[in-house]
Amino acid sequence: MARITHGIACSHIPALGVASDFDKWEDPYWKPIQQGFAPTQKWEAENLPDVVILVYNDHASAFDMKIIPTFAIGCGESYKPADEGWGPREVPDVEGHPDLAWHIAQSLILDEFDMTIINEMDVDHGLTVPLSMVFGKPAKWPVKVIPLAVNVVTYPPPSGNRCWALGEAIARAVESFPEDLNVQVWGTGGMSHQLQGPRAGLINAEWDNMFLDKLSGDTQELRCIPHIEYLRETGSEGIEMVMWLIMRGALGKETRELLRFYHVPASNTAVGHIVLEPVNGDVPPSATVEGAATQEQII
């Protein structure tokens, strides 16, 4: 039986990919970030899963304005790094896990999450930067990856609550996969940042750390944060943090924090990173009302 062993959240700032690709980690600007991720790289090598379900958003790379799927799952054999306007990153191709991916896609749809299925696409920095941060520069990525793309570009993106519930549904789907597999769920993007307009450069370390704090334990408060709060408090691109809630939802009732790193800045953005372990991985039997937590339970 497949099982979710851990969750990781990680910013996917393009500049981190540049730092990795051009070996800039010894530069004083980048060194603290390299040091911040070093414990995770070591930990991940000792806790290597078979598959990572990698929640990210495409930044006008595989998807343009023609088609905007809210939730899409990659069921392909492999994915190439996208050319985002300066040539593709020189990182390995990403190997998929079509058996598990199709199992999850089918399970989610039967569980009333109406997924878009992707068989072919290129993957941009949203997906490849977290791989670089956690695995460094191997000749081949040491895990298989199931891309799970979320629209956080065109409003409205899905609610935090819906993301959390999708995570729970992913946990149910993984649990019913017959093969013996260790699976991690990664949520990527964030933390506070704004890349547009006169307010660009906004960073809210206090809010970001509140968010990191509440990812562990049994609180479900984060799922109830409305979009407007992300926009006001964390900048227009901070909304990417709803993707972390898919990861958190998939870890079940209670989690504990194993590793955490927070640093400002990388380029325009606050770098946030956390490794979580399920303490009680139970998820409700369905996303319908009888399965959801009560107001009392979340407070």
């Binding site: 307010r199 660009a200 906004l202 960073i203 370390a205 408090e233 400002v264 800045p265 380029s267």
Partner: peptide, 16 residues
């Protein structure tokens, strides 16, 4: 702008 980012970014105070 770069110096502001290195100093911790633009404060959300008054920007919400």
């Amino acid at each position: 702008y770069q110096a502001m980012m290195i100093a911790g970014g633009r404060s959300p105070e008054g920007q919400r």
